[in-house]
Design a binder for these strands. Structure first.
Lengths: 231, 231
DNA sequence: TAGATTGTTAATCGATTAACAATC
DNA sequence: TAGATTGTTAATCGATTAACAATC
């Protein structure tokens, strides 16, 4: 693709900077230092400066960053300087929630359509966005040159959906199905997996001592089972 | 907390292993090697073996891992060997979708209640789970000794909600609001931020050449603006 | 015993942090 | 000029990968 590949962890921080700048601009703040951005974001000031310099030198030494200027740069870097057309596949509860949220709150994207296979939901409108039969997805993707799809179908049909949308030109997918999906090189799949998030959170809600005693307890049960067998 | 702190990246992989084991067990597979787990998960076999040895030696050299045995160990490690009681704060579309999903599909958690402030939704039931007024959250949290909360309220009330639930004993929060939340040490906040996911995805959907030309173009515009000012 | 695969230590890689010169 | 803050290089830290002895 390009000379240097910028790491995924850097890219994930850019939208955070953008959101902070949006808030600062709303409060008419004109200049912000990396230290202030650090306080707002939780990332270190050094890291923020380093992240930004991957793309250019946007600040003024001794002063800081102009909020409006840096925001515009970030929009261009991320690719938000023109509205991105996206589609949502799966118009169940989650698909509907995501469609509504983006239609109402996200000024950087335009949801062209939602798709489903369920005749019950086909034909409905979500904030003015029509739910179409999934069969029509290829046509819409090609017509609008859509590159980004949100997938909220059940795990067992997710791969099939990926194959179909990729075949028709989609190159970036945000997957909410709890499944490992495969796609040809050059297609980016990001997973937003609620179950994994929730389970790793439960790990942290369990006190360390309790976890250790559970593991140990299990081991003792096995031991006594083995001894029972031997008897 | 404990002797060694196991990194967050390791913990996030454990639920993936668990899911694969669930699928293997459903297909009556009794033994799995780290290589096979690697193919299913996308993580390297070395990494999988290393992750597991943080908690113990669960495999058999020359053979592999017993699926049922490893699954039971993972359940205990993550803390899923008994149902975790959770609450959902915010019963809008996203909160409803998450409540439904977990009630129907997630056998490891029990949603005790959902909460909202909107009189329109209070009193409704989501898959048998009642939506209660947020004022009652402290009482329910204490009564059921709830440690885990999912927060799907708007960004501007999220911090207030965090303060209230933490005050009453919650130690782990999965936050869906697009906001940086603060909590005392020992309280874990995981963020599931759709906007950040979607924006970083849009970055990857934009071709590298296009991004560079946009940035460059911006720079030229500025230059010509400066020149206009000088004229 | 031979073949296979784990568990573990050492080597490598990448990301974060520290330090500081450049410069407003 | 003095004070401040960026941009960038070097040092550190942590995570991944490679290698291999242990052992089924």
């Amino acid at each position: 693709m390009s000379s240097r590949n910028i790491s995924k962890t850097v890219i994930k921080r850019l939208p955070v900077y953008l959101r902070i700048l949006d808030n600062l601009i709303r409060r008419d703040v004109e200049i912000v230092s990396s230290r202030e951005l650090s306080l707002e974001s939780g990332f270190s000031a050094e890291q923020i400066r380093k992240d930004l310099t991957y793309f250019g030198a946007f600040g003024t030494r001794g002063t800081g960053y102009n909020t409006v200027f840096l925001r515009e740069k970030l929009l261009k870097i991320i690719g938000l300087d023109q509205k991105t057309k996206i589609i949502v596949i799966g118009a169940g509860h989650l698909g509907t929630a995501l469609t509504r949220y983006n239609a109402l709150k996200n000024p950087y994207v335009e949801i062209v359509a939602a798709f489903d296979r369920d005749l019950q939901v086909i034909g409905q409108k979500i904030c003015g966005i029509e739910v179409l039969p999934f069969d029509q997805a290829p046509e819409i993707i090609r017509k609008h040159n859509i590159k980004v799809a949100l997938i909220t179908v059940p795990a067992d049909s997710a791969q099939e959906v990926v194959d179909k949308v990729v075949e028709n030109g989609v190159t970036a997918i945000l997957n909410f199905a709890p499944a490992k999906l495969h796609a040809p090189e050059g297609v980016h799949i990001h997973n937003s997996d609620l179950t994994i998030e929730l389970q790793s959170l439960i790990y942290y809600s369990t006190a360390e001592e309790e976890r250790l005693s559970r593991l140990k307890q299990g081991a003792e049960e096995e031991k006594s089972q083995k001894m029972l067998k031997l008897e």
